[in-house]
Design a protein around this nucleic acid. Structure first.
Length: 156
DNA sequence: CAAGTGATTAGCT
DNA sequence: GCTAATCACTTGT
């Protein structure tokens, strides 16, 4: 996935649908686009300091995919500079980090994801781990997390 | 492990 | 309208 010359391999995502924990319900004003659009960008502010980016999806009903982490491959220097870090593994290993690293903007909400980003087919087979294994301590956290097994670039 | 941060929402008035 | 509670996180002790 690329955006403005920077980008990388998506290594972690999380899926949301019309369930009680999704923004379709909990943030229904802005989250409503999960049910009315497909392939659009949905950005939101969380905890007053972090932005996260989703792409609405699922032609069968409300749905969206949260982009959680990428493995930087393009414009690595640019991302490190924007993030103010030196370790590539810290550049985009989390939703808020990814947002900063790619130089995204909250006003992108509603735009066509395929016009704003460039999505490329994967170049290698990957071993995808899913499931509720990660700390479900926080109430309302869904088990629909997908991550590349063994990657150094996923969130903690 | 705790705190910081502000938009959004729910629940009252 | 207003106030309090919530939150799909990151960073620094």
């Amino acid at each position: 996935m690329l955006h403005g010359g920077v980008g990388g391999v998506i290594v972690e995502t999380e899926a949301y649908k019309g369930d009680a924990a999704s923004h379709f319900v909990t943030r229904r004003h802005k989250g409503a686009m999960m049910g009315t659009t497909h392939g659009r960008i949905y950005v939101y502010l969380i905890y007053g300091m972090h932005h996260c980016v989703n792409v609405t999806s699922d032609a069968t009903g409300p749905g969206a995919v949260l982009l959680r982490a990428i493995e930087p491959t393009h414009g690595v220097e640019e991302m490190l500079r924007r993030r103010g870090v030196t370790d590539v593994r810290d550049a985009a290993s989390g939703p808020g980090k990814l947002f900063v690293a790619l130089g995204l903007d909250p006003t992108m909400t509603g735009r066509d994801a395929c016009e704003t980003f460039t999505f490329l087919p994967r170049t290698r087979e990957v071993d995808v781990a899913t499931g509720p294994r990660i700390g479900i301590s926080r109430a309302k956290r869904l088990p629909w997390r997908f991550r590349v097994r063994g990657s150094e670039f996923v969130s903690r």
